[in-house]
Protein backbone atom coordinates (compact mmCIF):
# COMPACT_ATOMS: atom_id res chain seq x y z
CA UNK A 1 0.00 0.00 0.00
CA UNK A 2 1.12 3.52 -0.79
CA UNK A 3 2.57 4.94 2.42
CA UNK A 4 1.75 8.54 1.48
CA UNK A 5 -1.94 7.86 2.07
CA UNK A 6 -1.27 7.36 5.75
CA UNK A 7 0.74 10.55 6.23
CA UNK A 8 -0.45 14.12 6.38
CA UNK A 9 -2.88 13.76 9.26
CA UNK A 10 -2.73 15.69 12.53
CA UNK A 11 0.13 14.67 14.80
CA UNK A 12 -1.93 15.69 17.85
CA UNK A 13 -5.52 15.27 16.57
CA UNK A 14 -7.49 16.55 19.53
CA UNK A 15 -5.53 19.79 19.94
CA UNK A 16 -4.90 20.52 16.26
CA UNK A 17 -8.57 19.90 15.44
CA UNK A 18 -9.51 22.36 18.20
CA UNK A 19 -7.22 25.01 16.71
CA UNK A 20 -8.47 24.29 13.21
CA UNK A 21 -12.08 24.55 14.27
CA UNK A 22 -11.53 27.78 16.17
CA UNK A 23 -10.15 29.33 12.97
CA UNK A 24 -13.00 27.91 10.88
CA UNK A 25 -15.59 29.20 13.36
CA UNK A 26 -14.04 32.67 13.50
CA UNK A 27 -14.01 32.74 9.71
CA UNK A 28 -17.67 31.68 9.44
CA UNK A 29 -18.70 34.16 12.15
CA UNK A 30 -16.80 37.03 10.50
CA UNK A 31 -17.14 36.72 6.72
CA UNK A 32 -14.13 38.16 4.93
CA UNK A 33 -11.65 37.58 7.77
CA UNK A 34 -8.67 35.54 6.59
CA UNK A 35 -7.12 33.15 9.11
CA UNK A 36 -4.16 30.76 9.02
CA UNK A 37 -4.35 27.07 9.95
CA UNK A 38 -1.69 24.37 10.04
CA UNK A 39 -1.02 20.73 10.52
CA UNK A 40 -2.48 18.68 7.67
CA UNK A 41 -1.15 17.66 4.27
CA UNK A 42 -3.38 15.92 1.74
CA UNK A 43 -2.30 14.72 -1.73
CA UNK A 44 -1.84 17.48 -4.34
CA UNK A 45 -3.50 19.73 -5.34
CA UNK A 46 -5.26 20.02 -1.96
CA UNK A 47 -4.12 23.06 0.03
CA UNK A 48 -3.06 22.79 3.65
CA UNK A 49 -6.08 24.80 4.78
CA UNK A 50 -8.50 22.57 2.84
CA UNK A 51 -6.84 19.47 4.31
CA UNK A 52 -7.29 20.91 7.82
CA UNK A 53 -10.99 21.58 7.12
CA UNK A 54 -11.48 17.99 5.91
CA UNK A 55 -9.89 16.60 9.06
CA UNK A 56 -11.75 18.97 11.39
CA UNK A 57 -15.23 18.58 9.89
CA UNK A 58 -15.52 15.30 7.97
CA UNK A 59 -16.18 11.81 9.33
CA UNK A 60 -18.34 8.78 8.44
CA UNK A 61 -21.48 10.93 8.91
CA UNK A 62 -20.57 13.40 6.16
CA UNK A 63 -20.64 12.39 2.49
CA UNK A 64 -17.92 14.24 0.58
CA UNK A 65 -17.94 15.11 -3.11
CA UNK A 66 -14.62 15.71 -4.82
CA UNK A 67 -14.77 18.01 -7.84
CA UNK A 68 -12.92 16.86 -11.00
CA UNK A 69 -10.16 19.38 -10.25
CA UNK A 70 -9.29 17.44 -7.10
CA UNK A 71 -10.66 13.94 -7.58
CA UNK A 72 -7.90 11.33 -7.60
CA UNK A 73 -7.31 7.83 -6.25
CA UNK A 74 -4.72 9.19 -3.87
CA UNK A 75 -7.09 11.78 -2.39
CA UNK A 76 -9.96 9.29 -2.14
CA UNK A 77 -7.72 6.94 -0.19
CA UNK A 78 -6.44 9.81 1.97
CA UNK A 79 -9.98 10.92 2.82
CA UNK A 80 -11.01 7.32 3.55
CA UNK A 81 -7.99 6.66 5.79
CA UNK A 82 -8.00 9.92 7.75
CA UNK A 83 -11.69 10.77 8.02
CA UNK A 84 -13.70 7.68 7.04
CA UNK A 85 -16.03 9.95 5.08
CA UNK A 86 -17.79 8.30 2.13
CA UNK A 87 -16.83 9.89 -1.21
CA UNK A 88 -20.06 10.18 -3.17
CA UNK A 89 -20.67 10.31 -6.91
CA UNK A 90 -23.23 13.10 -7.04
CA UNK A 91 -23.16 16.71 -5.82
CA UNK A 92 -26.66 16.34 -4.41
CA UNK A 93 -25.59 13.71 -1.87
CA UNK A 94 -22.73 15.70 -0.41
CA UNK A 95 -22.47 17.43 2.96
CA UNK A 96 -19.08 18.79 1.92
CA UNK A 97 -17.61 19.40 -1.52
CA UNK A 98 -14.02 20.23 -2.36
CA UNK A 99 -12.58 21.67 -5.53
CA UNK A 100 -11.83 24.71 -7.62
CA UNK A 101 -14.67 27.13 -8.34
CA UNK A 102 -15.24 26.19 -11.99
CA UNK A 103 -15.08 22.55 -11.12
CA UNK A 104 -17.63 22.77 -8.27
CA UNK A 105 -20.33 24.28 -10.52
CA UNK A 106 -23.25 24.00 -11.11
CA UNK A 107 -24.20 25.14 -7.60
CA UNK A 108 -27.85 24.28 -8.20
CA UNK A 109 -27.10 20.59 -7.74
CA UNK A 110 -26.10 20.81 -4.06
CA UNK A 111 -28.43 20.43 -1.12
CA UNK A 112 -29.63 23.80 0.17
CA UNK A 113 -31.57 22.51 3.17
CA UNK A 114 -35.32 22.47 3.73
CA UNK A 115 -37.61 25.20 5.03
CA UNK A 116 -37.84 23.40 8.37
CA UNK A 117 -34.18 22.35 8.49
CA UNK A 118 -32.12 24.91 6.57
CA UNK A 119 -29.04 23.51 8.31
CA UNK A 120 -29.20 20.39 6.14
CA UNK A 121 -27.29 22.07 3.37
CA UNK A 122 -23.90 21.50 1.78
CA UNK A 123 -20.71 23.34 2.69
CA UNK A 124 -18.36 23.99 -0.23
CA UNK A 125 -14.60 24.24 0.18
CA UNK A 126 -13.38 26.36 -2.71
CA UNK A 127 -9.66 26.22 -3.56
CA UNK A 128 -8.33 29.60 -4.68
CA UNK A 129 -5.12 30.83 -6.29
CA UNK A 130 -5.16 33.86 -4.08
CA UNK A 131 -7.02 35.09 -1.01
CA UNK A 132 -7.22 38.84 -0.41
CA UNK A 133 -9.49 41.03 1.71
CA UNK A 134 -10.51 43.11 -1.29
CA UNK A 135 -12.81 42.78 -4.26
CA UNK A 136 -16.45 41.90 -3.68
CA UNK A 137 -18.10 43.99 -0.97
CA UNK A 138 -19.62 42.00 1.89
CA UNK A 139 -22.25 43.15 4.38
CA UNK A 140 -24.44 41.31 6.84
CA UNK A 141 -24.23 39.34 10.09
CA UNK A 142 -20.69 39.12 11.46
CA UNK A 143 -19.52 42.24 9.63
CA UNK A 144 -19.31 45.56 11.46
CA UNK A 145 -19.73 47.78 8.42
CA UNK A 146 -18.31 46.29 5.25
CA UNK A 147 -15.73 43.63 4.46
CA UNK A 148 -14.01 42.67 1.23
CA UNK A 149 -13.01 39.33 -0.25
CA UNK A 150 -11.76 38.39 -3.73
CA UNK A 151 -14.67 36.06 -4.48
CA UNK A 152 -14.54 34.12 -7.75
CA UNK A 153 -18.02 35.35 -8.69
CA UNK A 154 -20.67 37.81 -7.47
CA UNK A 155 -23.90 36.75 -9.16
CA UNK A 156 -23.71 33.19 -7.81
CA UNK A 157 -23.32 34.37 -4.20
CA UNK A 158 -26.06 36.91 -4.63
CA UNK A 159 -28.39 34.19 -5.92
CA UNK A 160 -27.36 32.06 -2.94
CA UNK A 161 -28.18 34.92 -0.54
CA UNK A 162 -31.60 35.25 -2.16
CA UNK A 163 -32.40 31.71 -1.00
CA UNK A 164 -31.89 32.66 2.68
CA UNK A 165 -32.50 30.99 5.11
CA UNK A 166 -31.77 28.15 2.69
CA UNK A 167 -28.55 28.08 0.71
CA UNK A 168 -24.94 26.94 0.63
CA UNK A 169 -22.09 27.98 2.91
CA UNK A 170 -18.56 28.41 1.61
CA UNK A 171 -14.99 28.17 2.79
CA UNK A 172 -12.25 29.60 0.57
CA UNK A 173 -8.78 28.15 0.95
CA UNK A 174 -5.39 29.13 -0.39
CA UNK A 175 -2.19 27.65 1.01
CA UNK A 176 -2.48 27.67 4.78
CA UNK A 177 -5.14 30.40 4.86
CA UNK A 178 -8.90 30.27 4.85
CA UNK A 179 -11.92 32.57 4.77
CA UNK A 180 -15.64 31.86 4.78
CA UNK A 181 -18.88 33.14 3.33
CA UNK A 182 -22.11 32.00 4.98
CA UNK A 183 -25.41 32.24 3.08
CA UNK A 184 -26.41 35.21 5.27
CA UNK A 185 -23.85 37.57 3.69
CA UNK A 186 -24.93 40.13 1.07
CA UNK A 187 -22.41 40.32 -1.76
CA UNK A 188 -22.09 43.39 -3.97
CA UNK A 189 -19.93 44.08 -6.99
CA UNK A 190 -17.47 46.89 -6.05
CA UNK A 191 -18.30 48.64 -9.34
CA UNK A 192 -21.91 49.09 -8.21
CA UNK A 193 -20.98 50.54 -4.82
CA UNK A 194 -18.84 53.43 -6.08
Amino acid sequence: MDQSVMTGGFSDPSIQAAWGFRAAMNAMARPGDILAVQGAQAPAPVSEAAAVLLLVLCDPDTPVWLAPSHDSDALRRWVAFHTGAPVVAARGEAAFALGRWDSLAPLGDYRIGTAEYPDRSATLIVEMDDLRAEGAVLTGPGIKEVAGLNLPDVAAFRANRALFPLGLDFFFTCGDRLAALPRSTCVTDPAEVS
Binding site: A17, P118, D119, P182, R183
Partner: peptide, 14 residues
Protein backbone atom coordinates in the same frame (compact mmCIF):
# COMPACT_ATOMS: atom_id res chain seq x y z
CA UNK B 1 -16.88 17.27 18.79
CA UNK B 2 -16.98 17.19 14.97
CA UNK B 3 -20.75 16.71 15.06
CA UNK B 4 -21.16 19.65 17.46
CA UNK B 5 -18.72 21.77 15.46
CA UNK B 6 -20.66 21.22 12.25
CA UNK B 7 -23.85 22.24 14.05
CA UNK B 8 -22.16 25.41 15.35
CA UNK B 9 -21.02 26.41 11.84
CA UNK B 10 -24.53 25.95 10.43
CA UNK B 11 -25.99 27.84 13.41
CA UNK B 12 -23.66 30.78 12.68
CA UNK B 13 -24.61 30.68 8.99
CA UNK B 14 -28.34 30.90 9.80
Amino acid sequence: KRMIRRAILKALAV
